[in-house]
Structures are given as C-alpha cells and as structure tokens.
Design a protein around this nucleic acid. Structure first.
Lengths: 237, 237
DNA sequence: CACCTTAACTGAATATCATTCAATATTGAG
DNA sequence: CTCAATATTGAATGATATTCAGTTAAGGTG
C-alpha cells in the first residue's frame, strides 16, 4: 500500500537526492535520506489534498510508513515539514523553467517566462490550491528556491539594459508575494483566470521596464514546460 | 481591571460604532455593539502581543470580560475574529492617511503617500510584527478596508494620465501582498529598514508610471500622519 | 560470531486549545 | 410581575501536535 503511493508520487516530484552524494554515504545515512524523502512526498500529498492546516502528522507519518514520533527526528515541527514540502515544489518548478529558458536570448524574456510559468502552475494545478492558503510559507519557499534563478535573471536583464532593478533580491521577494497573493485571489474566484496576463504585466512593471514593453513581453509566445519530475538536477549558472 | 485595559486601548484603535446608528438601537443592540467592540480590541491586544496563532480565545475572552463561549456568538471562529481585528487596524490607518492626502493635488502623490505610510506603520510599530506573520490575512484585510481608498486613488491617477492601471483592484491586491511580504521580510531582518524607499519605488512602478518618476514620487517630502484613533469616521468619495 | 554501544524508531500518553452545548441569567413585552 | 425569547456562561469535548520512556536495529570490536 505505501509502495503504491510512493510510486505514484515519485513521478510528480523529482527526488532531490544526488547519486554522487548517495554513494559516498553509509547505508544508514542513505536510508535516512530515503525516509526524509518519503516524508516530504507524503507531506506534499496530504497537504495538497487537505490543506496544510488540515493535514495531520499522523496521516503523513502513516503514508510515509514511519511512526508518528519519527517525523520529529527529521523535522522540528509541522511547519518545518510544510516548508520543506513547499521548497521541493518550488525547486522542481524552477528546474523545469530553467530547462526551457536556457535557450532564450533575451534576458527579460527569461524572467517573464518564469513568472508566467509559476502563475500558470499555481492557478491550474488543483494541488496548489490548498497550499496557497498559507501564502507567506509558499512565497518564502519561492524566494528561497526559485530566487537564485530569478535574481540572476533580473540582474542579467538589468545589465543588458532591459530592466532597471537596484536590489534584485528585494524585487523578487515582492514579486513572489504579489504572485502568490494574486494566484490565491484567482483560485478563490475573486478574479477570473483571464487576469493572469495582467498579473504578469504588473510583475514585469515592477522591474522598471516600461508598461508598453511589459505588455509586449507578456504577450510573447511561450514554449511548453517539461513534465513534473522529469528534470533531475541543475546548478544556477 | 478590564476597565483599565479598555481605556488604554480605545486610545489606540478608534471605535468604529457611529453615534447616529447607536441612538437608533435598543439597549441590547447597543450593549452588543460594545461587547463586539471590546472583543475586537481585546483580540488586537492579545494577537499583536503573542501573534495570531499563539493568542488563545480564553485570554481574549477574559480581557474583553466575557465568557469563553460568548466570543462565538460574535465571531464564527478564531479566524473570523482575527480578520475583524486586522480590518479594524487597516480601516483606522486608511482614515488617518485620507485625513492627510485629501489636501494633495497630485493624485499620484496620494497613492504614493498611502503606500509609504502603510509600510512605515508596518515596520515601525512593534504591534504589527506578530500580525504580519499571517500575511494572507493581513493583506486581505488591507485590500478590503484600504482598497476602496487606494483603488479610487489609482483610478484618479490613471485618469489624470499619471499612472497606467487597467484593473485597479487587481493592481492593489498585488501591491497589498507585496507590501505585507516585504514588511515581514524587514521585521525578520532579511532586509534593512533602508529598503523601505526602494519598496515604495517598486510598488509605484507596478502602476505603470516610469521608474524615474517612481523614484521622484517616493522622494517627496511627506507631512506627518495623525495619531492612532484620532480620526472618527469618513466616507470614500 | 556474540557482545555492546550508540543511534534511530515507536506509539501510547500528554498538553493545549478551539469549539460546543446544556444550564443559567437577562431582557423586555404584555 | 410573568414568561417566552435571547444572550451568556464555562465546564466538557474532541482533535491533534508534540514528547518520551521503552524497544529495536546497526555496525564496530574482540
């Protein structure tokens, strides 16, 4: 029974453990990595189904096939587990975006594509709905895990004279919160999903690019994103 | 004992109950208004001291001098009470901002002043720190209670050709989340409070005003805000 | 291989509240 | 004053995050 779940979910979130690291460790350490992995996956499944607050530690522990207390030797608290889950989700998405944008030539378009992709994922995927409700947690995870990519892109585009960003980290922090907040509003029916285009424009405006150019950037055709869990690993360059 | 607290706190958050309405009601209704009021005030005090999650309903009930169960005949849940508290905070601030900006001539400056004031309040007042942690709740309250003012300002500035905002509600929704998120980051020491200026610039950029003009708007001298609880009531015009 | 130390794991027990609800008190109409 | 309706109370409930004393497994050692 737990086996089935593992199979199912491993397809959706890539395992972050690196083969090279894995080989250099003892059997215990490897087993712990796998257990931690199982917990993050189980946490993702339960939390995206019931919502972070409604997910119970017992259910997560059972799905990961460990005792209730064991969770606490991997994560200090439920919140910390939730953070780990969010970060995994963000990292997976960041890698998939990177996989597409590394062939782009316009650095501004790289950022625009990333922003658009995140918004699409957040508003189209049912599993994000429950997670969005704790927006500070998800925005934080977004900043921590997608930040290295996004900040690099903002800086590249600024160097190329496309954007005018003074503090890329701050700009992306604000963008992350604005994105999560507006996606939450869309999933709650406060705005129609047609608003996505306009959200992208506003996030781009924050970079100091003019309104007209922001509109143009948001309109450009976008190649599709690779499937979830299909990218293994990549370093920010 | 409860008397003292009431006195103390009424100075900090204006009582929203309107004299005219009050007179048209029976004694019971008036008493209920006062009790609801006491609950919001007590909620504000306890939640801003301990944080929303750490505040207990019992402590709030005791401070408001009612039984534990009574809270639930005024608010369906703890969350709903938290929302009422946040909305009160936002409304009070909105009125104080309005009180200053209604003498401004440049509609863009009205919005800029509002944004700046909110950020200053959120980062300087210790009592906001605990509240910011539930950023979706506070951003929501900000949108609901300051929105009517801010959206009007965005539309005025757009009509005047200063801003280029298509959907003012959406733009302010995003701004609210970005503001709350970045203030949270500042109170957590992730950014220095010098970042406030830059945050204002980025929020202004979102309106489609150019970067240079955003910088100039953010730099303008600002008159001081009236004290908390000193404004009684005002309609959005 | 048997022993032992160390670390990991377990799940029943604990502690903490949000929330409910049966009982009680208050109100105001007649 | 009486009584039905309403509001209030706070002890009991239920849910569940977290802890911890006891158990199990790992792997190093002679």
């Amino acid at each position: 029974m737990p086996e089935q779940h593992e199979m199912e979910w491993i397809l959706l979130l890539a395992d972050e453990t690196d083969r090279r690291e894995t080989k250099a460790m003892g059997r215990v350490a490897r087993k712990q990595l796998r257990k931690r992995e199982a917990l993050v996956l189980a946490g993702y499944k339960v939390m995206s189904e019931r919502g972070i607050d409604q997910a119970t530690m017992l259910e997560i522990a059972e799905l990961a096939d460990v005792g209730a207390g064991t969770v606490y030797s991997y994560f200090k608290s439920k919140d910390e587990l939730a953070i780990a889950v969010m970060e995994r989700l963000m990292y997976d998405l960041a890698l998939r975006i990177e996989n597409v944008t590394n062939s782009f030539t316009d650095p501004a378009q790289v950022y625009a594509f990333g922003v658009r992709s995140v918004i699409e994922a957040a508003t189209n995927d049912i599993r994000w709905k429950q997670l969005l409700y704790r927006s500070e947690v998800i925005a934080d995870a977004m900043h921590r895990r997608m930040g290295p990519f996004a900040i690099r892109d903002l800086e590249n585009a600024t160097k190329a004279g496309r954007f005018k960003v003074r503090d890329a980290s701050l700009t992306f922090k604000m963008a992350a919160h604005a994105i999560v907040g507006s996606c939450l509003a869309i999933t709650q029916g406060e705005f129609s999903s047609d608003a996505v285009e306009e959200i992208v424009v506003r996030i781009l405006c924050m970079t100091g690019v003019g309104e007209d150019e922001a509109v143009e950037l948001a309109k450009r055709e976008r190649p599709p994103l690779p499937l979830e869990g299909s990218i293994v690993s990549r370093k920010v360059t």
